[in-house]
């Protein structure tokens, strides 16, 4: 009997551990990289910023710092969006990609890369340096909107249809992306391959100014959905009987995850696995209650991405592995082991 009782650490302990890990990951990320700028250098740099070499100054303040913040926010927003959507779809396999976010972002980004000089030259002239991220953001939100329209009938949303619509839209977006890839020349091909593998390597404060607010908005509002999503675990109608406004919950969940993930994908490219693995793993540790699960997933996602990014820039230095690649490389096998252990346990 006792073995079946849910073994869970108290939430406060979990948050303390995660916060500790976040600090460690941040310290590691700030003191490691191809450029020789270790802990003592960083301390000196912080004590006497004027005395530092301009290169060291730039590496710390303009490269590693924004990279840390962007990495943490991106990891958090991907994990939280994954949690929200898994809750909405009542399915542990759901992730932001499922409602078309990444498919749409990829299509838009590849369009800019391949057609930026021809058909889309107006767009690139208009938006300049932001042509690609802006397009990716718009693309992700638009595809989600299309999936939403397909699934809505007389003001209510069929969740199963939304899921299927997302899959179909992803297939279409994937095919169009493939078509563009076919017409891409060699250099465009390399660019879009790198974009699709995701990267935090080019993070800047400007990126954060543009994408940060959306990600923060999604992160700060997500906890509002904790209780309704708990109720959703019993099904839509039960949630309604419990007094929750079902349509509102669905709308808020999709909007928050599309905005947050769209903004993240726009500046980092495609980073998979965080949205899928983190909520799933955390649910085994902190339980399924969203009041704890949402913030814990956010913290864990941030920690995970910052840690993976730190590794990505160390393992093949002075070159860097794309972070999306790194995530899947670490996350994939880890997830498999987890699944196997669960099966043996069951």
């Amino acid at each position: 009997m006792a073995t079946d009782t849910a073994k869970r650490a108290p939430a406060s302990l979990i948050f303390m551990v995660l916060a500790g890990l976040a600090v460690l990951a941040a310290l590691f990320s700030l003191t490691n990289g191809a450029y020789p700028l270790g802990t003592s250098d960083v301390v000196n740099l912080l004590l006497e910023p004027e005395a530092a070499k301009p290169a060291a100054h730039m590496v710390f303040f303009d490269v590693r710092m924004p990279r840390l913040v962007l990495g943490f926010l991106t990891g958090a927003v991907l994990a939280v969006s994954g949690t929200l959507l898994q809750g909405l779809f009542r399915n542990p396999l759901a992730d932001p990609g499922l409602i078309g976010v990444s498919g749409g972002a990829a299509l838009a980004a590849v369009s800019v890369i391949v057609l930026g000089g021809s058909w889309l030259s107006d767009w690139t002239i208009l938006t300049g340096r932001w042509a690609l991220p802006l397009a990716a953001f718009v693309g992700s939100v638009l595809t989600t909107l299309v999936a939403w329209r397909v699934a809505s009938r007389s003001g209510s949303i069929a969740v199963a249809t939304l899921l299927l619509a997302g899959i179909a839209i992803n297939a279409v977006a994937g095919a169009l992306t493939g078509l563009l890839t076919f017409y891409a020349d060699d250099s465009e091909l390399r660019s879009l391959t790198f974009w699709s593998m995701g990267s935090l390597g080019h993070a800047s404060w400007e990126d954060l100014q543009v994408a940060g607010p959306w990600m923060l908005l999604a992160l700060l509002l997500a906890p509002v959905l904790a209780k309704p999503l708990d109720a959703f675990a019993l099904g839509e109608s039960v949630a309604g009987h419990l007094g929750f406004s079902v349509q509102w919950v669905k709308r808020a969940t999709v909007v928050l995850s599309a905005l947050g993930t769209g903004a993240a994908v726009a500046v980092t490219g495609l980073i998979g696995f965080v949205g899928l693995v983190v909520p799933h793993l955390l649910r085994q540790i902190v339980g399924a209650g969203h009041r704890v699960l949402i913030p814990a997933s956010g913290l864990a996602g941030g920690v995970l991405l910052v840690a993976a990014d730190s590794l990505a820039r160390v393992v093949v230095a002075p070159a860097e592995l794309p972070i999306g690649l790194m995530m899947s490389l670490l996350g994939g096998p880890f997830f498999l082991v987890l699944l196997m252990r669960m099966r043996i346990g069951a």
Binding site: P92, G235, G243
Partner: peptide, 28 residues
């Protein structure tokens, strides 16, 4: 939300999709 305080509904079948504890479900 108002109605939920005076009327409760139990459907024929409810599937709990995630590992919630009994206490968490009842607490809803």
């Amino acid at each position: 939300a108002e109605l939920a305080r005076q009327r409760a509904v139990m459907p024929q079948r409810v599937d709990v999709s995630f590992p919630f504890t009994t206490r968490e479900i009842v607490a809803l």
